[in-house]
């Protein structure tokens, strides 16, 4: 999480336009705030300040409130996701099934909370958020380096 500052990463203007088109199709009501933020993130992959401002004006809610709402949701990103990032689930079932050894096998992968595929533990997600179940350390090394 980080405050909106002037050294934000550059914005993909074409993606921004896609996001704006989606938002424009929504009624200008407050209850579209989250759908609009999600539509923007779907298009841009993250929520630059301009996207937040656009959503705020569309649903007629102060920017400060939209920002406060955005930061309250763990899946809304105020900065671009790390490219190529793998995640290793460290929920209880995955922990029991050896998530720690997966973290050792792929030191660049990040920890992530429960992915709700507990019966397929241990679970990892690749850079495209595709889930893999019953992953062994060897298999992970192979996939993550492929």
């Amino acid at each position: 999480m980080r405050l909106m500052s002037d050294d934000s990463p550059p914005i993909d203007l074409e993606a921004m336009q896609t996001g704006i088109s989606s938002v424009d199709r929504m009624p200008r009501d407050r209850d579209r705030l989250l759908p609009a933020l999600l539509a923007m993130q779907e298009a841009l992959d993250w929520l630059p300040r301009e996207a937040i401002r656009y959503v705020a004006s569309h649903v007629r809610v102060p920017v400060s409130e939209v920002y406060a709402t955005t930061t309250a949701y763990s899946e809304l990103r105020l900065e671009p996701a790390v490219a190529g990032q793998w995640h290793i689930c460290t929920g209880v079932a995955c922990d029991l099934a050896g998530a720690a050894s997966l973290l050792k096998a792929a030191p660049d992968a990040a920890r992530i909370d429960c992915q709700f595929l507990c019966a397929l533990a241990p679970v990892v997600t690749d850079e495209h958020e595709q889930l893999f179940g019953r992953v062994s350390a060897d298999e992970l090394r192979e996939r993550a380096n492929a």
């Binding site: 989250l34 763990s74 809304l76």
Partner: peptide, 22 residues
């Protein structure tokens, strides 16, 4: 669609979320 957070399963949180509140 929700956007993450264990607390979002709490029913009054869902009401706020749908309404566009925090």
């Amino acid at each position: 669609a929700g956007a993450g957070g264990y607390v979002c399963g709490e029913e009054s949180v869902i009401l706020n979320s749908i309404e566009g509140e925090r």
